[in-house]
Design a protein around this nucleic acid. Sequence first.
DNA 1: AGCCTCCATGTTTACGTCAACATTTCTGGC
DNA 2: GCCAGAAATGTTGACGTAAACATGGAGGCT
Lengths: 343, 343
Amino acid sequence: MTTDETPVRRRRGASMADVARLAGVSGQTVSRVANGRRNVDEATRDRVLAAMREVGYRPNSAARALRNGQFRSIGVIAFELSSFGNTRTLDAIAAAATSSGYAVNLIPVLHGTPHDLSGAFDRLGEQAVDGVIILIEAHRLDEADVQMPEGMPVVVIDSNADLDYPVVDTDQAQGSRLATEHLLDLGHRTVWHLGGPEDSYAASRRLRSWRQTLIDHGCPVPPVLTGDWSAGSGYAAGRKLAADPDVTAVFAANDQMALGLLRALHEAGRAVPEDVSVVGFDDMEEAAQFWPPLTTIRQFFPEVARRSVDALIEGIRTGEHHHQPVAVGTELVVRASTAPPRR
Amino acid sequence: MTTDETPVRRRRGASMADVARLAGVSGQTVSRVANGRRNVDEATRDRVLAAMREVGYRPNSAARALRNGQFRSIGVIAFELSSFGNTRTLDAIAAAATSSGYAVNLIPVLHGTPHDLSGAFDRLGEQAVDGVIILIEAHRLDEADVQMPEGMPVVVIDSNADLDYPVVDTDQAQGSRLATEHLLDLGHRTVWHLGGPEDSYAASRRLRSWRQTLIDHGCPVPPVLTGDWSAGSGYAAGRKLAADPDVTAVFAANDQMALGLLRALHEAGRAVPEDVSVVGFDDMEEAAQFWPPLTTIRQFFPEVARRSVDALIEGIRTGEHHHQPVAVGTELVVRASTAPPRR
DNA sequence: AGCCTCCATGTTTACGTCAACATTTCTGGC
DNA sequence: GCCAGAAATGTTGACGTAAACATGGAGGCT
């Protein structure tokens, strides 16, 4: 597997020893300056700083990591970023990690089969990371017969609280309830649901909460249509919904599917929101520019990311983790795609 | 800056020495097995492999990096991933890098101000990376007074060939020409342009090529509207375009702005494509589900990423780089948003 | 037999950093 | 002016790995 003889080229930057020689001090003093220790004489510090600048000194993170047993880096395991939510979350994780002084290692899972997933975890053991955030539907972890390197702190962003790892996620149930109740409050007799893939916990949470909300309000529970998060699948499902004159309100499990749904409704000549009201989930940036602008449930990705990173760093520092799942609330954003039903 | 005394917890995994002891060989033999060298006796290798499994040995990448002077990791410097293109590119870079045995370090630039940018590059010197792919509009690099750590291989994904670094990018000019000619071929008298931000090279390339194409075909060149890539800015510009009855064909510099444009046209009661034809750029996944489905220019992000990663690894290996810019072609995808003009 | 070669394996060492401990220099009190 | 104690600075060694070099034994050739 690793048999190729790579022609290696050493990058040879200035080391502490070089700086020390130039500044006429010991390497240890350079180390102290580099780490902002205060027990260094002002004049000495300046001399060292000048020397650093002169030789273009950069700390060698490999040596530092070896010495300290820490990389100050966290790994993020994710499928293709194509999904809007994952992208936003990753972005926010990177920001949060950076502000906490951690680097981010992106560990892609190339094809999503259990085999590839295991591959990602195998590689993980060799990755220069102190901990891992998993951005993958948890059920796939089971499938993949995954073995985390022993002692590797982990945080999972997912709604499955059964896991053996700390879990952070958007409060899917609350968001789903907000969406459904918004439509009921407008006077719709009931709300149809265009759900995400069955094997997604996020999707099943949204579905379950939608159903429960209908039951709580004494509304009939229509059959569920299922998509795969993509706009294309939303369109396919939308064609069926558009053909049914009973449908006056639909809650799509994400904005992308809602987009496809809108297209299907337009195509069928059903006006939104006059004939059919539509609510999405995510509040992706484009949702405000859909036609019509989409009422949706806003997720707070930065908050999810912040909490995940903090929990992970806590785990890295202390070696323990809180199994208390964290749920981040959502917010209803009302736009033009919802209105009372036509009488 | 780095004065906090962090309570450090060592992660202590099995090392080569542990494996060696258990297998009754020297550390060097373990190293040979770990690296797939073939000059190890079959029986010995098996013994070592068994010992590795028993103690759960994982190579320590810090030690390896220190020893070899290489991290087998590349950095990707990017602004917020919000832009669709960057996300796709990052995703593809991660895939390409992984398949080449390199890890990916995501280095976010938090706010996009010159100050933050310098921060990213300062940190860069300490990052555990062998090279860097820059996913930032190149002109910002100038603004930021950026100093790459000496000898750090760099590849820039951008259309500015004036840079001192190897450049890889989509062939903006070719794509722009495709879009414009498609509309002219349909019989439109001329094509309006909704451009990206002025300080973006990609945007200015698309704009220049659009203008040149019109000139080549002897068409009048209408005034340019300028957005900031966002769907919202597309909407704002779209309101102006929608108010002008002369406008029958618009080429938007990306799909997101095209989405906002479509909304503005709908709102103004101008039918697409009957009254106005619209072409976008990118072919984001949702474009096929816009209303109407959007004719657009498809970019091949995986190709761009592959080329970038290859060029970077080449630079890492050899220490030299080819200044030959790489331009990846595009493809016209015709959908329902374009049609001949109404006569 | 004597010698040379090839191959598996072992030993030493350096990569750059920083904790721990050792030493030197300064400060102030009497 | 002397000494205790604090502050600044130096020395040593270890983190885990792998290249370079060293060793030793098996087999082939004359």
